[in-house]
Simulated assay, not measured.
Amino acid sequence: MTGAERSVALYASDMPTGFSWSRGVTPQVIVWVMQGVDRLGFDDVYRSGMEVEYYRVLRLAGQVPSETRRWLRGRFPDRVRLGCVERAAALLTFRLGDHEPVSGFVGDDSFRVYRAYGDDVDEVGV
């Protein structure tokens, strides 16, 4: 998921508006993201995430049309909550990047693939 999609999902979740990141909350934030996706459906999260990303690009360029501002206010009426979920989505992206994937087999009994990461990549024969 993109950061914008995570923001959309978190906004729709039960995450408290006054949420503040602290040590050990990453699993709970992931649960809230999944809850938001369940409530909205992935298609809506995907489309809304694209629109949020489009808004962010326009905002950086200083060229946000009034209809885009109206859409954003209609979709995310609570500005405080929006700021809170944007911070949480950004921190979640940062925290998920801390974990290096582990080499090993993935798949089930019908189809398995060995994925190699880090130092294991040069040791795997094709």
Results as ranks from 00 to 15, higher is better:
2 T>F: 07
2 T>H: 09
3 G>I: 08
4 A>F: 03
4 A>K: 05
6 R>W: 00
6 R>D: 02
6 R>S: 11
7 S>A: 15
8 V>C: 07
10 L>N: 07
11 Y>N: 00
12 A>G: 03
14 D>E: 15
14 D>F: 03
14 D>W: 00
15 M>P: 06
17 T>F: 03
19 F>Y: 07
24 G>N: 00
24 G>T: 00
25 V>R: 04
25 V>S: 00
25 V>P: 01
27 P>F: 05
27 P>H: 04
28 Q>F: 10
28 Q>D: 15
29 V>M: 01
29 V>D: 08
29 V>T: 08
30 I>N: 09
30 I>Y: 02
31 V>A: 15
31 V>P: 00
31 V>Y: 01
31 V>S: 13
32 W>D: 05
32 W>N: 06
34 M>C: 02
35 Q>S: 12
36 G>L: 03
36 G>V: 04
37 V>R: 04
39 R>N: 14
40 L>T: 11
40 L>H: 09
40 L>Q: 10
41 G>C: 00
41 G>I: 07
42 F>L: 13
42 F>W: 13
43 D>N: 11
43 D>H: 10
43 D>R: 07
44 D>A: 14
44 D>I: 13
46 Y>V: 03
47 R>P: 05
49 G>N: 00
49 G>E: 00
50 M>L: 07
51 E>N: 04
53 E>Y: 06
54 Y>V: 03
55 Y>P: 09
56 R>M: 14
57 V>E: 12
58 L>I: 01
58 L>E: 01
59 R>E: 15
59 R>G: 01
60 L>Y: 01
60 L>W: 04
61 A>F: 05
63 Q>P: 01
64 V>Y: 06
65 P>H: 07
66 S>Y: 08
66 S>T: 14
67 E>N: 01
67 E>Y: 01
67 E>G: 02
68 T>G: 05
71 W>S: 14
72 L>G: 11
73 R>E: 14
73 R>Q: 15
74 G>Y: 08
74 G>T: 12
74 G>M: 12
74 G>C: 06
75 R>S: 09
76 F>I: 08
77 P>L: 11
77 P>C: 12
77 P>K: 03
78 D>Y: 05
79 R>P: 15
80 V>L: 09
80 V>M: 07
81 R>E: 03
81 R>N: 00
81 R>T: 02
83 G>F: 00
83 G>W: 08
84 C>H: 07
85 V>M: 03
85 V>T: 07
85 V>I: 12
86 E>L: 11
87 R>G: 02
87 R>S: 11
88 A>T: 14
88 A>I: 08
89 A>N: 12
89 A>S: 14
89 A>L: 04
90 A>N: 13
90 A>Y: 03
90 A>S: 14
91 L>R: 09
93 T>A: 15
94 F>S: 15
94 F>E: 15
95 R>A: 15
95 R>G: 08
96 L>R: 11
97 G>M: 05
97 G>V: 10
98 D>F: 06
99 H>I: 09
99 H>V: 13
101 P>E: 06
102 V>P: 04
103 S>L: 00
105 F>A: 09
105 F>L: 15
107 G>L: 00
108 D>G: 14
109 D>W: 05
110 S>N: 12
110 S>T: 11
112 R>I: 04
114 Y>M: 06
114 Y>L: 10
115 R>L: 11
116 A>T: 08
117 Y>D: 03
117 Y>G: 02
117 Y>M: 00
118 G>P: 07
119 D>T: 13
